[in-house]
């Protein structure tokens, strides 16, 4: 009876790691059509490799079986030719990787841009001071008290949005307005669960009223192209447009109070 041939453990491990790597690329880049960023893939693979190595080495037998071929490659006199080939190929691969990583390119370097700027405690707009800790949307109360009036306010906010904001943020509030492709960073996608749904209305009021130039100096330089809307819209219009943003996206502003 012949014994079933098994793939050597070292090869198994390498195949699993490569399999996961290419599965990520296949899934995101090909099937889903949204590429997986290199920085994220590197981090993902770091943990995948750690997990695979852990599974392959937690028993003594497993660890020995894994490192056995490597030991043999280094120590076994009969493997001289393979050893020489491996000892040439590995440094060459390392050199190639280093060269490709360090080679200057025409692409601008990556930047760790802070997307969510921290708001100040107070800010000035419309010639007065606003305290962000206590500032509330004066129209939010109508959502419960007078739904009909609230709908009117939302509609008015929608008009303000279509006339002023949709060019960048899009008529579906998804950040894909006609001008969006000309901007970097691209306009915020309000439909995303991680944007306005995470924020209080006072934060939105501050960002809209003071725009890019109103961003705090602590983490400069800012590269937002958001206009200073207090120069073009009234205070009321900003509050109404905020109502519209939440209403259209079906999100609720961040709040600490139970209903």
């Amino acid at each position: 009876m012949t014994q079933k041939r098994r793939i050597p453990r070292l090869l198994q491990m390498v195949l699993i790691i490569l399999g996961v790597y290419f599965s990520f690329i296949l899934l995101f880049d090909v099937v889903l059509g949204q590429l997986i960023p290199k920085s994220l893939l590197t981090m993902y693979m770091l943990f995948v490799v750690a997990g695979v190595v852990m599974v392959f080495t937690f028993t003594e037998e497993g660890a020995q079986e894994l490192v056995g071929p490597i030991k043999a490659l280094v120590e076994d006199p009969s493997k001289k030719t393979v050893r020489n080939v491996v000892f040439v190929i590995v440094p060459l691969l390392a050199g190639y990787y280093t060269y490709s990583s360090m080679m200057p390119s025409f692409e601008a370097p990556m930047e760790l841009r802070t997307i969510h700027p921290a708001p100040p405690t107070k800010f000035k707009a419309y010639g007065k001071s606003f305290n962000l800790a206590t500032l509330e949307n004066p129209y939010r109360k109508f959502q419960k008290e007078d739904p009909a009036k609230f709908s009117e306010l939302v509609k008015a906010g929608g008009d303000v949005y279509i006339q002023n904001c949709q060019y960048c943020h899009g008529d579906k509030l998804d950040g894909k307005g006609p001008y969006a492709s000309g901007l970097n960073p691209t306009p915020l996608n309000f439909q995303d669960v991680g944007t306005i749904a995470q924020l209080q209305e006072s934060f939105l009021f501050w960002r809209i009223a003071t725009g890019g130039p109103g961003l705090p100096a602590e983490a400069a330089p800012w590269i937002s192209s958001m206009p200073v809307w207090q120069d073009f819209l009234t205070e009321d219009e900003i509050w109404k447009v905020i109502l519209f943003l939440y209403d259209y996206t079906g999100r609720a502003p961040r709040s600490w109070a139970h209903e």
């Binding site: 995101f28 889903l32 949204q34 590429l35 997986i36 960023p37 290199k38 920085s39 994220l40 692409e107 601008a108 990556m110 760790l112 841009r113 997307i115 969510h116 950040g175 894909k176 970097n184 960073p185 691209t186 996608n189 995303d192 669960v193 991680g194």
Partner: peptide
Amino acid sequence: HTLVLTNSELKSLGGPYHAYLGV
């Protein structure tokens, strides 16, 4: 939530958020 992207990746994704991984 906000990814570290090269410019070509940013262009390809259409913004700093990933449609599937962003969640």
